[in-house]
């Protein structure tokens, strides 16, 4: 059916159903996002307006921040060269993504498969494993501080490493802290993925399973050859969620290090936050980092979504 076949009333209904969400999305998400792209070429403390003049042409009084001004691509070159957090952040984001894709997400899927098989106590498992997703950031911060604290924390107390000469500094040591945080993050991510896959698995036609079993397939084969492909819509959702959550990862680091990321915990989104939402803001520079983050995340997702949706459109 095509749009042209709608009658007048249907046309209005469709217009409203599309239009209202679109306007909200455009006004409050995309418009600010585009403005941020513009801001990424400026230097601005967030106070007063931005003048459409080059920063070089404006006077600079020591101690008084310059009014907002155009800074060309200086922010970008600064990000790649002088800003010490940039490259570590990129590296950590990649590690984060790899751990999510290679560990947390498969673990969540495993949970879902086991629960979906109707294991005894599945309700309890499902609830407990999903629990971390429901907790507020403040609570998660407190919980893990109690676990990782060097002198009083659960881990060091249990393994007897709380003395000054042998303690393990889980959150401070740059070779450990990213991994400590990834444990927290996986703790949350696995439950999230589990719920999505549970929804997916429940939607798979049981007849598929039975047919596979009649053909003599093992449980393993049945899952990978029959059920997993049948969950394609959910697989796409999970993939997108995994990428989004790895790139957007910021809250755990933020709550752990109180705004200033400890060495070893630099992430792009944390760097954006630090510059934009701080006591003194480097809006221009922070926006630059945000635009870079956006570009990195948009490219693969757009390609993937386009492929995924287009294949669905074409007749099978």
């Amino acid at each position: 059916m095509s749009v042209s076949r709608f009658n007048r009333r249907d046309g209005l209904v469709v217009a409203a159903m599309l239009g209202v969400p679109l306007i909200i999305d455009a006004a409050f998400i995309w418009l600010p996002a585009l403005a941020s792209v513009g801001l990424s070429f400026t230097k601005w403390t967030g106070v007063g307006g931005v003048q459409l003049k080059s920063c070089d042409s404006l006077p600079s009084v020591p101690g008084i921040p310059q009014p907002g001004c155009l800074n060309g691509v200086d922010n970008y070159s600064q990000a790649f060269t002088t800003y010490p957090d940039f490259w570590p952040a990129v590296q950590h984001n990649i590690i984060w993504l790899l751990v999510f894709a290679g560990f947390a997400t498969p673990l969540g899927m495993l949970f879902a498969v086991v629960i979906d098989r109707g294991i005894r106590g599945s309700r309890i498992y499902q609830s407990v494993l999903f629990l971390p997703v429901m907790l507020s950031l403040a609570l998660i911060g407190i919980i893990w501080e109690l676990i990782y604290s060097p002198n009083y924390g659960l881990i060091n107390s249990v393994i007897g490493r709380t003395a000054d000469d042998n303690l393990i500094d889980w959150l401070g040591d740059p070779s450990l802290n990213l991994w400590a945080l990834l444990v927290e993050a996986s703790w949350r991510q696995a439950g999230y993925v589990m719920i999505l896959y549970l929804a997916g698995l429940k939607a798979v036609d049981p007849a598929l399973r039975e047919a596979a079993q009649i053909d003599g397939a093992t449980g393993w084969q049945t899952f990978w050859r029959v059920i997993f492909p049948a969950m394609r819509p959910i697989n796409i959702v999970v993939m997108v969620v995994t990428v989004i959550e790895s790139l957007r990862a910021f809250d755990l680091v933020y709550i752990t290090s109180g705004g200033n990321p400890l060495k070893g915990l630099e992430l792009l989104s944390v760097a954006v936050t630090q510059n934009i939402v701080g006591e003194t803001q480097r809006i221009g520079f922070g926006s630059t980092l945000g635009v870079i983050l956006l570009a990195i995340s948009l490219v693969p997702i757009t390609i993937f979504l386009y492929q995924a949706f287009r294949r669905e459109e074409s007749p099978k």
């Binding site: 909200i24 006004a27 307006g49």
Partner: peptide
């Protein structure tokens, strides 16, 4: 309700970002 506020948002936005004032219109 949300449409109305969204429309207002758009009005506010165009006031904010309308050329050529662009961001200087963010107002001091």
């Amino acid at each position: 309700l949300s449409r109305r506020s969204a429309l207002k948002g758009l009005a506010g936005a165009s006031a904010l970002f309308g050329a050529p004032a662009l961001l200087s219109a963010c107002g001091d």
